[in-house]
Nucleic acid binder design. Structure first.
Lengths: 224, 224
DNA sequence: GACGGGCGCCAAGGACGCGTGAAGACCTCG
DNA sequence: CGAGGTCTTCACGCGTCCTTGGCGCCCGTC
């Protein structure tokens, strides 16, 4: 299910969006100001952010920059009519789309669909195979010699990031950021623990890995 | 340079866009109806398509579907005010963005930048080759005659700075600053040690380097 | 021909990062 | 309310990498 975070300080709009989006089978969470919006982004990792520019505590473009600092989650911006310079600033700060209030719900929903579709251009290779195990990104399943391998949520997220960047070196910072969120960029401990777990479950010889390689001092690399 | 194809049947709008976009250093080509627009897409492979929905010969959403059949080039749609159902149909057909006429040129330009930015997340030159070895910046990988070369973090950082400034002289100060940070700008020792390491790992004859050259008294230079 | 600066090279120590096991905190079920 | 599973945190041993100093060589200069 697609998860949407709505950040707006006007309660009626918040309620209207929540009702409409929930009816369309989106999973909706909300925040009423910029600071708690940023916090919610990090905590809940929604698939899309709908952001009102007229927040009480922060400038809207600063919120956008705060989000863009660590993720490319699509951002749809809401704002009052006629503030064209704001539009430009928001788009340049990294917003993906812009809707002017008052807006039609149908238009917003269409833009939402477009944003989600753009963000997931992954009909490409949903399943990756190695000599030892196979990873099915779409089904979120891992099998090894025919049998399913049980992964915890964190283990799966970590593996997913590595597999999506197959053959690429993924920095420790990047891994921590994408799995645990910003603010964990120094907790390299977690990586050691969870990479060890994955190796134990996936590698033929966990102590001399063939697929989940560590690049000392830099990060990890998945080799298909 | 970014290439834009504008498809619109109204000559004044076509001219205005062409003038404004050209002034912004876009490379602009035009078409006046859907059929020639599709032909131009296939022929010229622009980086972005700006499409007016009100064309004389075809329905706008059909043009979008025709384009989406074979490429994911960003599409920005133009249309008259108030036709909300059209907007929805266009976005669902695969358009990336939507601008209502009359529109401000600044907004269109901002949306254009956003579309291009989304489409090309990799403005880098990811791989550099020499006669002896290849450096893949994106994958953070160095191969020499087919085999991977193991570099330590510091070695890699140093090599990366040199490769990104290929053919340019990089001063010792700059290298020390970018690899070790400010405050190390006098520790020229480090450079000697690590350049020697890199040469040992990459040069065919480390004692008479062909790719990692010393510029006495100044710094170093990478020659691809 | 002696001198000195800049560079290449080597080797040793100390610091740092990684893998590992284990224990406590936390959450989510039954 | 308890039990199982999951996440966090910590300490230890080991291997690697960084730092540092010294030495010799090749230049230029005096």
């Amino acid at each position: 299910m697609t998860r949407v975070l709505v950040v707006d300080d006007e309660a009626p709009i918040l309620r209207a969006l929540k009702i409409n989006l929930t009816a369309r089978r989106y999973e909706v969470s909300t925040a009423a100001d910029g600071a708690s919006g940023l916090a919610a982004m990090a905590r809940e990792r929604p698939d899309v952010l709908i952001l009102d520019l007229g927040l009480p505590d922060m400038d809207g473009t600063d919120v956008i920059r705060g989000v863009r600092g660590w993720t490319s989650t699509p951002i749809i911006v809401l704002s009052a009519w006629g503030q064209e310079s704001q539009k430009v600033a928001a788009l340049d700060a990294g917003a993906d789309d812009y809707v002017t209030k008052p807006f039609g719900m149908d238009e917003l929903l269409a833009r939402l669909r477009a944003a989600v579709r753009r963000a997931s251009p992954a009909p490409d290779e949903p399943v990756v195979v190695t000599g030892e195990f196979t990873v099915d990104l779409a089904r979120k399943r891992v099998t090894r010699s025919g049998a399913d391998v049980r992964l915890t949520p964190t283990e799966w997220q970590l593996l997913e990031v590595l597999v999506r960047n197959a053959d690429r070196l993924v920095t420790q910072r990047q891994l921590l950021q994408e799995v645990w969120g910003p603010g964990y960029q120094t907790e390299a401990n977690y990586l050691r623990v969870y990479v060890a777990n994955l190796r134990r479950k996936l590698e033929p010889d966990p102590s001399s890995p063939r697929y989940l390689l560590t690049e000392p001092g830099m990060g990890y690399r998945f080799r298909p």
